[in-house]
Amino acid sequence: MFDDLHGELRVGAGDGAAGREPFCVVATAGTVMSGAIDPIGPIADLCEREGLWLHVDGAYGGLFVLADRRRAALDACRRADSIALDPHKLLFAPLEAGCLLVRDRTRLARAYAFKSAYLTVEEDPLMVDYMDYGPQLSRGFKALKVWSALQAFGVGAYRTVVDHLLRLADHLGQRVEADPNLELMAPVTLTAVCFRMKGATEAEHTAALATLAGEGTALLGPALLDGRHGLRACVTNYRTGLADIDAVADRVGELARQLRRTSGAGAARPV
């Protein structure tokens, strides 16, 4: 859809010739796997220039804007026409808690609102009837748990916790870089840390995950980036501390050293 010409985004010239008319761009404010953030500012520039709707997928990463240390990378999210957020992540709300924010809610109403004789809700300027803003008619008050938590703890508490989680992820990244048997698979931008044991195969990484979970050290997940397999730690629990991060780094480093000893000091193998 887009050409990158001299560092500037523009709509692909071949789209019109092929009968395709772009109408929306979806930018990502933190991919789930590695936390990578799209250049949202330049993408917003393109959307304004071309008259395109900009939607930002901030389900995982959007709420990191609460932290000073990541705000610059996410500040351009304010220019989006719509943004998706998951309060069950960084606002720690119970499942399910998804959220769509829109700049102009009348556009949603034009898409979804309808009149019917059996719906007798009277017009009330103080009432927002969410049946007019999505496909669901009967629905519970899912936002109550998010609103209640914000009222009880305040935004400041969430800022503190998000900053704490980012510092822990940065610390894990530093521990990985300092271990000669481990390597980062991607820069640590948010709280997802993807790393691998040098020379390890996919099966060996899978076995390491099982070992960590089985012995109660940590519940990590698999990582697959650019065809390379590894481990993914995502720090999203406000109870996690530096000691927990160090325990993970120490144990994975130990597993990596054991692996290199048993495989002939890291002989080359497919990964």
Rank of each mutant, 00 (worst) to 15 (best):
A117H: 05
A247K: 09
K89F: 01
P39A: 14
A27R: 08
R10C: 13
D170I: 00
D68N: 04
G16W: 08
R70A: 01
K145E: 06
I245A: 08
F2W: 13
L85S: 02
T28Q: 13
V32G: 02
Y118M: 12
D15P: 03
L126D: 15
E21Q: 10
P42C: 09
T120D: 11
Y133K: 09
F153C: 08
G51F: 08
L220P: 01
L224F: 05
T217A: 03
A268M: 09
A268W: 08
Y118C: 11
F141M: 10
A200T: 01
A233Q: 14
A109T: 08
R107D: 02
T28G: 06
Q151V: 09
Y112H: 14
G14D: 10
D15V: 14
A111M: 12
G61Y: 00
V102Q: 03
N237M: 14
D170V: 01
S116F: 05
R49L: 10
I83F: 01
S116W: 06
L172R: 05
A111V: 14
A256F: 10
G14A: 08
G19D: 11
L108D: 03
F114R: 15
G51V: 05
Y118I: 14
L66W: 04
R71M: 00
R139T: 12
K89E: 00
M127Q: 10
R70N: 00
D4C: 07
E254H: 12
W147G: 04
R260I: 09
E202C: 12
G12E: 06
V155I: 13
D124W: 04
Y130Q: 11
K89N: 03
H205P: 03
M1L: 12
T160F: 07
V161Q: 12
V188T: 10
V128H: 11
L255Y: 12
V248S: 07
F141Q: 11
S116Q: 10
G199D: 03
I83P: 02
G98N: 12
Y238C: 07
A249C: 13
I43E: 10
L119I: 14
L108H: 03
Y112V: 07
D226A: 15
A67P: 00
G227T: 06
F153D: 12
L126H: 09
K145I: 11
D179R: 05
G61I: 00
L259A: 09
A143S: 14
A157D: 11
C194P: 02
L231P: 09
R78N: 02
L95V: 05
A44I: 10
Q151I: 05
R269T: 13
R196V: 00
S138R: 13
Y133H: 15
D226H: 08
V121N: 06
L52A: 02
G61P: 02
L63T: 00
L74K: 02
Q136N: 04
V65G: 07
Q258K: 09
L119G: 06
L119C: 10
L144P: 03
R269Y: 04
V155T: 11
S82H: 04
S138E: 11
R232P: 03
S82Q: 06
G241V: 15
L90A: 08
G173L: 05
L255K: 13
F114S: 15
T106F: 04
H205M: 02
L5V: 14
A73E: 02
G266T: 09
I40T: 00
L85E: 03
T28A: 07
